[in-house]
Structure formats: structure tokens, C-alpha cells
């Protein structure tokens, strides 16, 4: 064996579009009871990237607190999303504004197909990816857990592939480990499970499958204690990553004793 120590895992990092991060957990900023709780959960999660939505300012109450007052965009990477967009045109328009609001080219593209499942519309998603790449954006793309669609997105210039583990906000966990694993094996860009994580073990499963990271919102925000759940997710992502790097034991159909059989009295 090589002389690797446990501390080497502390230096584990991943890179997307030339930017390197040590935390493999990306957290959303929706559904929290208030900005202060959101900021505390972010702190506990150790995440370096947060997803944010782009919406009309509240013209009737311009002094309402703003997200940027609680989560400093100079310290945490804002990843603007296109949540709520159902066409490529809407998504591109939203991200053009997001780029102007913050000056970022690293964005999260999601183009939804229907409200009931919030499943991505892959035809529109691919179209939007091509337009965004042509305009200099670096899109991280929410997609179905389909290895072929993932490959097409990568070829179109997606800087990260983000397949759903289960529908957005469902908390059902990774429904199809086989396809997530196939996407990881076939991808030349980072793969992050985006959507579907419900609890810590789900995040660990995603990481054990070899994903580069996990993106979640509801699993933390709707926990009874979001701050504790944020910490649980941080640990789960680290645990899953370490288990993946360590290489799990083989599966056996029957028992194999851990104590020697020789020398029994």
C-alpha cells in the first residue's frame, strides 16, 4: 500500500470550470424559515457554493431583507439557477440577468418539463445548454439520470452533469443507482446528484457511487432541525467520499468469519 494517511482526505478537492472547491456539498437557499437560519445551516454544512434563484425585486417593499445581506457573495459562490423555467428561452433570459446581477458565468441550468414531477425537459435543456455555452456561460446542468442524455450535455459544453436522484423536493433518495453509476463512469466532467436526497444516507450513497458532489435544498431546509441536518449532510458527503476512495469490500452471498478458524479450542 502507499503511504496515504487519513489526513490526505482533508486535501480532497474537485474542480468545475477551472474553479476548485474542497466541499463536495452544494446547498440551496430556499424554504428556510428565515435568512438567519439559512446562513446558520450553510455554515454547518461547510458548503462553498449555494444555489440562488433570480426573481423580480419587491418594488412595494424595497427595504425587505435580502439574501445577499445574510450570505456574502464574496465569500460563498452563488450559483444562479433557472428554477421555474419551462423553456430554453426563459432559462437563457434568466441567466443573462443573473450574470449581470452578479457577474458570474458559472450557473445552474434547469429546464422543467411539468409542474407535477418537475422532471427536466431534456430537449429544451440541451437547446439552452448550447445557447449558454455559445454566450460564454459555464452551465452545470440538471438532467434526467440517463447516461446518453448526460453524454449529449457534456458534448454540448456542460461543465457539470447533475442528474436527479429522485424528483425535486421528494426526499425519496437515489432511485436508480445503476444509471447514476453509468453516468459517473462515462463522464469527463464532474457529476453531482441534484435533487431527491432526503437524509444523510442518501447523500452518502451518491458519493459512494463515485459522484463528485451532491446538491440539496429541501432535505436540510425541511428537517426539524435544519442546522443539525446540515452538519449531518456534511459528514455524510465526507463519509461517502472516503468510502468511495477507500474502495468497498466485495459482496458475498454467505458469511465469512472475521476471527480465525485455526486454533479453536
Amino acid at each position: 500500500m502507499t503511504g496515504k494517511t487519513a489526513n490526505e482526505s482533508d486535501r480532497d478537492s474537485w474542480t468545475v470550470a477551472g474553479r476548485t472547491f474542497t466541499s463536495r456539498l452544494i446547498v440551496g437557499t430556499g424554504k428556510y424559515s428565515d435568512f438567519a437560519q439559512n446562513a446558520a445551516a450553510l455554515e454547518a454544512s461547510g458548503a462553498e457554493i449555494v444555489t440562488v434563484a433570480v426573481r423580480r425585486v419587491n418594488v412595494s417593499d424595497p427595504n425587505a431583507p435580502m439574501l445577499t445581506d445574510f450570505i456574502d457573495p464574496r465569500k460563498v459562490t452563488y450559483l444562479p439557477n433557472t428554477a421555474g423555467c419551462f423553456t430554453a428561452d426563459e432559462a437563457v433570459r434568466t441567466l443573462r440577468l443573473a450574470r449581470e446581477a452578479g457577474g458570474w458565468d458559472l450557473v445552474k441550468l434547469e429546464v422543467l418539463g411539468e409542474a407535477r414531477t418537475l422532471y427536466p425537459d431534456m430537449r429544451e435543456t440541451l437547446k439552452a445548454t448550447e445557447t449558454l455555452v455559445a454566450e460564454g456561460f459555464k452551465p452545470m446542468v440538471y438532467c434526467v439520470d440517463d447516461p446518453i442524455a448526460a453524454k449529449q450535455l457534456e458534448e454540448a459544453g456542460a461543465v457539470a452533469i447533475m442528474p436527479l436522484g429522485a424528483p425535486i423536493g421528494s426526499g425519496l433518495g437515489i432511485q436508480n443507482r445503476v444509471t447514476i453509476r453509468l453516468i459517473v463512469e462515462g463522464s469527463g466532467v464532474p457529476v453531482l446528484v441534484d435533487a431527491g436526497v432526503g437524509t444523510a444516507s442518501d447523500a452518502a450513497v451518491a458519493m459512494e457511487l463515485g459522484c463528485d458532489g451532491v446538491l440539496m435544498n429541501t432535505a436540510i431546509a425541511e428537517a426539524k432541525d435544519p442546522i443539525r441536518m446540515a452538519r449531518a449532510m456534511k459528514l455524510a458527503v465526507e463519509a461517502g467520499r472516503n468510502a468511495y476512495l477507500a474502495g468497498r469490500m466485495g459482496r458475498r452471498m454467505y458469511a465469512d468469519p472475521s476471527s480465525p478458524l485455526a486454533g479453536l479450542i
Binding site: V52, A53, V54, R55, L67, P80, E100, A101
Partner: peptide
């Protein structure tokens, strides 16, 4: 999109349709 650097230069004209957005919490 009006580039931020030009917000002080571009004049509001009759009939203009503006969208003014900011970042809010989202997943």
C-alpha cells in the same frame, strides 16, 4: 439586459418595459 456599468447612462424612455431582478433563496 442593460449592463450594470451603463445603468447611469441609459435614459428611461416613454413606453419602456423593465424587469428588475435580484437573487432570492432557491434550490
Amino acid at each position: 439586459v442593460v449592463p450594470r456599468a451603463k445603468l447611469a447612462e441609459v435614459m428611461v424612455e416613454d413606453g419602456d418595459d423593465f424587469e428588475i431582478v435580484t437573487f432570492v433563496g432557491g434550490g
